[in-house]
Design a protein around this nucleic acid. Sequence first.
DNA 1: ACGGATGTTCGCGC
DNA 2: CGCGCGAACATCCG
Length: 266
Amino acid sequence: MPEGPEVEHTARVLARWLRGRRVAGVVAPPTRVLRGTRVAAVRRVAGTRLAGVARVGKFLLLRFEGGAGLLVHLGMSGHFVRRRPGEARAKHVRLALRLDDGSEVCFVDPRMFGRVAAHPAEALAALPEVARHGPDALAGPLDGRILGARVGRTRRAIKVALLDPAVVAGVGNIQATEALWRAKIDPRRPGHSLTAREIGALAKALRASLRDTLATLNGDAMEYVNAGGGNPFPIYDREGEPCPRCRRPLARIVQAARTTTWCPHC
DNA sequence: ACGGATGTTCGCGC
DNA sequence: CGCGCGAACATCCG
């Protein structure tokens, strides 16, 4: 589910849920989501309050007063839900933070591609998988110059390069697909073949697409609140439908084992 | 029943 | 070294 906008939304929701509350207890069943992290290390946030939530790319950095910290990645199917007293617990809960008001903040992840790791709060940002990230397309001032330095010399297809978190952070398959369409760039073109003008347009399109998606996320659930419901994206997963710009049918190709929807005409 | 799915990392081979 | 590719992870959904 989640790319940069969804993770950003999750960070804001978590901050709201946890603000002013103390973590009374922690339940962390030993699952693959914990990978090398020991349950005892995760439990160190018990008894403390949230000091802050940050996002780097698709990672969430949770810092707690007292110096404990959690690194969370939502993977493909991870999301947070809140359980109030008396409500049934969701399925596939991989981490539950019981708060001092009796509610529970649960990390649910059926597929377990997600991750929860415990590290000292001040060490989170320096973890290799976090520090490795390129400029954040949602938070940072991404422009053509910055993006060009990242993709201007690669021989990889521009679509594939955009999916690399070390190139730009927070961009996944949907956002890369949408941004390339907005910028009218053929997703198969090698990065080095793009002109400065095109890279500038692509940077702008990335920011606009991420921002638009974030704007459709409202409330506690990670659901898109868009007119008409359904697929909120202009291009993604719309093979065969008319291009919103030129009305010719959208096509679908596979690059690096990921689906790209695009408009061959535009 | 089958195929595909919004993420990341790793190993292999060229 | 760069890069494309497939696998791995485990489950749900149409």
